[in-house]
Nucleic acid binder design. Structure first.
Lengths: 338, 338
DNA sequence: AACGTTACTGGTAACGTTTCCAAAATCATC
DNA sequence: GATGATTTTGGAAACGTTACCAGTAACGTT
């Protein structure tokens, strides 16, 4: 017999299937004696319940899905790592789903949900600009991490989110450049339009310039095809060929690092010829030359908040919430005063 | 009714449960007419079978677990990404398990296996030096990725592996430095002893020196507490304070990048003052300054090989295999001739 | 037209749990 | 020690599939 069943345990501990089940699920209505009895046999034979059977009768699984757009992003890896820990320590299990830039996260999620009877979903890095009707496909709680849907059509009480205030933080980053005397400040953004992280950060950039009385020059803005470093590198190349600037705001650390490389390849020095600031705070920024000045998102806190919110939704206490985190300025050596 | 069952589909398509099941599982013994009928209703109502019920009667799940030590490692992320794709396209699902450096991968795997009735396991980046008795806990096929167990106690036909020949590739890397005229070549390794990737690569280093008639100097070797950049940085600091060298062989790209940063912080130039070579070929090496010369592991190929082997084991055709991949030299600007 | 093949179909018993319900045991009260 | 209340127990019906088995329909063959 490869796998023991609850029946075997019942027989071995001289009790019934029901009692074993009760013990295993920590029901109060079972005598101390029986409980001890059962526990002992369970330990002894290293019995582990069959999850499929359990999920079948429970009518759902114990799985929380994490749907991530761009798993290669170091910032996301960091978050995933913490999320996984938290999910397991809450007694759930996690399944990870990577989607490409052309995939539809809602489709993926809906499919997986139907197939596995998910408990909940955490979206990581998606755009998630869906209509309420679309979202109705998802009948389970979900939280969007790193995406705040600030202007989206979706009603705020239909889902939760954990994010930084992208626009405000971008504003802070650009203001820092302005305070250091920069006036020609370029922006390296990502192509996706509409209500995306890129757009929000871009708006922050524009607003900071406006508030400082610096006229907006579209020449100074270039969009990469994706968040990938490769695309950022070539976007930066276009930008650098087109115009001159003393500082660059990149919407992500990885993109800033690609930009840094382009500058190096063109024999331009950071920060002497061009200052650099970005948002994310990935570990790598401490190791590039020069170290990157960046607004660090509290990745671990964000991950824990996601799981905490989702779990409390699942347990029935707690409503949908939208949590905004603050970034912390981590000064590297990539910004100089002019 | 939230979820349709196979019974509903049977009723709706005017046939029986058995027939629907047969259609869904692509059994040949069903008429074209019935098949079309069923397919249509399935499409129309977007029916998705309940996996728990299926797994219950099948007596196993459709899940392949990936147990990874150090998910933050960019090389692993890349592999995971491809593995996930491959697993899904083969019709399985994936669950990802991150373990810390102190955790026991076998324990984790055994636990998860019992709980979920896994189909198979892929170990990523572990040491996996277990005795045959330990491994007997795992009753399902598994493949170790990036770890070859070259000298381990485990019988070779009990598991599969996909890896590079760590010793040989390290040998190649160090020989390249030797060919460029370097004689004082330091090594930045990782602390884990015994039969680890670090050790294998370290042996390759020693052998290359020996073959070139360069005497081995233990002063030139420093071990980091882990593969983390932080630990690599401080190990490199110790090394650099202790002795002088014209070139460094690091056992991983990430460690090399940390070393590069330390050299920069100490006002030493790469490659003028110290050449650098490593193994892995992560994308980032193209973006550091200067670009790192590295032996690139074919991450995608390795990932696909893992899944292919595992799937063929699961299908019953195919035996346990040990695949060695070749690296490809990707020349950056971090090595100079002396 | 009777027969044997073959192609297809539907009924039903698993699979290993949880949960409901009723029965049994225990306890408290008079 | 009889009664009712309470705690603890076990039996059995779900949950939604698959797979076996028996049966029916369709088709050639003689």
């Amino acid at each position: 017999m490869t796998h023991l069943t609850i029946k075997d345990i019942a027989k071995l501990s001289g009790t019934s299937v029901s009692t074993v089940s009760r013990v295993l699920n920590n029901h109060p209505d079972v005598s101390e004696k029986a409980r001890a009895q059962v526990m002992e046999t369970v330990e002894q034979y290293r019995y582990v319940p069959n999850n499929s059977a359990r999920n079948l009768v429970i009518r759902e699984s114990d799985t929380i899905a994490v749907v991530v757009r761009g798993i290669a992003n170091p910032f996301f890896t960091r978050i995933i790592k913490t999320i996984e820990r938290a999910i397991y320590s809450e007694g759930y299990s996690m399944s990870l789903h990577q989607i490409g830039s052309s995939d539809d996260e809602l489709m993926t999620a809906a499919m997986v949900e139907r197939e596995k009877r998910l408990k909940g979903i955490i979206f990581l890095g998606g755009r998630f600009n869906y209509s309420p009707e679309d979202v109705a496909m998802l009948r389970i709680p979900f939280v969007c991490c790193t995406y705040s849907n600030t202007f989206g059509a979706l009603e705020r009480d239909r889902f939760s989110s954990v994010a930084i205030d992208d626009k405000r933080e971008a504003y802070r980053a650009v203001r820092l450049l302005l305070e250091r005397g920069h006036r020609r400040i370029a922006a390296l953004i990502e192509a996706e339009d509409g209500d995306s992280i890129s757009q929000l950060r871009y708006e922050g950039y524009q607003e900071a310039l406006a508030d400082a009385g610096v006229p907006f020059d579209p020449e100074l803005v270039e969009a990469a095809g994706s968040f990938e470093m490769e695309d950022a590198y070539s976007a930066m190349a276009r930008l650098q060929e087109r115009t001159r600037f003393t500082a660059l705001f990149a919407i992500s650390d990885a993109m800033a690092m690609a930009a840094m490389k382009l500058l190096f390849d063109r024999r331009l020095r950071v920060p002497e010829d061009c200052s650099l600031i970005a948002i994310d705070g990935i570990e790598l920024t401490n190791y590039c030359v020069p170290t990157l000045t960046t607004l660090e998102q509290p990745a671990d806190e964000m991950a824990l908040a996601c799981v905490k919110i989702l779990v409390s939704l699942l347990r029935g206490d707690g409503k949908n919430r939208h949590v905004f985190m603050e970034t912390r300025l981590r000064e590297g050596a990539s910004v100089r005063s002019v």
